[in-house]
Design a protein around this nucleic acid. Sequence first.
DNA 1: CTGAAAGCGCTTACAG
DNA 2: CTGAAAGCGCTTACAG
Lengths: 346, 346
Amino acid sequence: MKKKSSLKDIAAYLGVSTTLVSYVINNKEKEAGVSKEMARKIRQAAKQLNYQPNLIAKSLKSGRTNTIGLVVADISNPFFSAIARIIEDEAGKYGYAAIFGSNDESAEKSATLINVLQSRQVDAFIIAAAEKSEEQIQGLQAANIPVVLIDRYFPSLDIDRVFIDNYQAAYKATQHLIRSGRTRVAMLAYDTGLYHMEERVKGYRDALRDHNLSFRKTWLRWIGYRQAKNEARQTMSDWLKPSVGIDAVLFATNTLAVESLKYIAASGVRVPERLAIIAFDESEAYDFFYSPVSSIRQPIEEMGKAAVRLVIERLGQPDKPTSAVGMDALLVLRESSDCSLMKKND
Amino acid sequence: MKKKSSLKDIAAYLGVSTTLVSYVINNKEKEAGVSKEMARKIRQAAKQLNYQPNLIAKSLKSGRTNTIGLVVADISNPFFSAIARIIEDEAGKYGYAAIFGSNDESAEKSATLINVLQSRQVDAFIIAAAEKSEEQIQGLQAANIPVVLIDRYFPSLDIDRVFIDNYQAAYKATQHLIRSGRTRVAMLAYDTGLYHMEERVKGYRDALRDHNLSFRKTWLRWIGYRQAKNEARQTMSDWLKPSVGIDAVLFATNTLAVESLKYIAASGVRVPERLAIIAFDESEAYDFFYSPVSSIRQPIEEMGKAAVRLVIERLGQPDKPTSAVGMDALLVLRESSDCSLMKKND
DNA sequence: CTGAAAGCGCTTACAG
DNA sequence: CTGAAAGCGCTTACAG
């Protein structure tokens, strides 16, 4: 039962003041003009007594915790856990740790989470924002707490952010499907007002329009986050009816795609011959689906690093102008959208 | 720039002492005998001034942070991110938050991580331990900090833990392969001294022995965590040579399996006809591999919940006897080990 | 070169 | 029913 020792313990042990100990422990001996000999003795005692600084006390004094609050939709979603890992590593380089939380795309949970993290005095936030969480985020800004949005953002908010050009990504993917001969291209999206989702849908619709494909209502389905599983299956089942005859689908996220791919595999519909597919994000499912899935790959590593960089910059310079870091997603073409394998007479 | 308000602000605003405010804010008005009217006024002022407690100050006073340090190998591994999510939710129910870190299966990183988390005064740890981290963990115990090991543990340490019966799981999987006619069953494992890995290998070897299959050295390959990708591919390539003729493989983890499955898919070897497969853990890859992969599924949810429960119990009763919570994994049989599809004349 | 003292935002035993 | 005061473990301006 080795007791933790405090500065006071070291001071008492050596019969000196805590002031001195503090200076040495924090390597401020030069500025404070602590004698070499004293510094040596203190360091030795610290080692001997197994001193570990109490960062809580330090934080109370300094007002900084060197902690970043990370808010994502669901840490068990590979997209977010990959980002979390990058952020963990990158923040660590600057001496910051991450406290994370999942909001399940719910504004209420997000509010609770942000409150908890704020009470814990995190120095800054990196947030993949939930729908309708603008006010919470503005609240943080009003309280002068740095916030960087990642993946999603609100165009109405003047705030640091890292994002991809979702419109372009969806447009290009749709265009690819159309140019290779698909004429009934559908899109499966989440029913959320979030800007990034709207941009993806807009890119899809504009691509249809620009290629003279008249859009039909049934081709675009918005489904709820909480019942995604059932609704994705239902949608696929509807779309694959001969009377509807969808011949290509753009999936707006990996979770939507994965659920649908399960249905597609089970239903026996041939990909890409009968149905071409392109999906956002990444998933091991994409690699292992019998027809490897073309995807819109976000530069996760760059995004995570940029988010941490923006946080650090903002902490150092609270009044600097907002940074909006846009990146391009990569359209990775594989077999699932290879329309040379198209079934002509269908 | 809404300033955060402190207890002192509320006290000053109302012209009362912080003592009173503290009692009310913490709902101790009854015990402290605060007047109804005063309590009402304080609550109102707290709301009005947008009071948010400073948990850091609270922690310094109380010596508790209501924080659990979660150490895993890699938060971006779906097995660990799934556990993290469970732990996050479950700990939240008890008012605890989680600070996480990845140790990349390295004892050095683990030591650094544990130090950082300890400096941050986490109340307890849940750790998926890295090889050779016994001493660090004993150090925590010596400092009287509750630790619960999850997934892996050290038989030499008397410590709370949650684990599955790895021996049984591997034994049964191997037995299944043998009973359905496979005679050259290999196993791919991580080259680590960790007990859970040794148990898995032991289960495999004992199953071979009990079914009178003489084990051959080449059938068991231990590969390094950091070069798993290359070594897994190399191993598969070796095993699939006609001269070696492995007809079944047990994979000791999901990452090992996923890398190997990529190679197998590319190489054109038929599963399960030519090669039967069973793999530990879960992965979307298992569902989408052309021959759905039989797996040894750990009860992740129960494990995560049990770990949090043990932590909470230990915090409440530091001297209670050690809890070792063992669970059974589930052998989920699918096509990849369906040996009725075995290629007889091979 | 070194130390006494104030203060970060809380809690709580104690006095009145 | 309410308040003054000490203290959690640090940091740092100030005095000597």
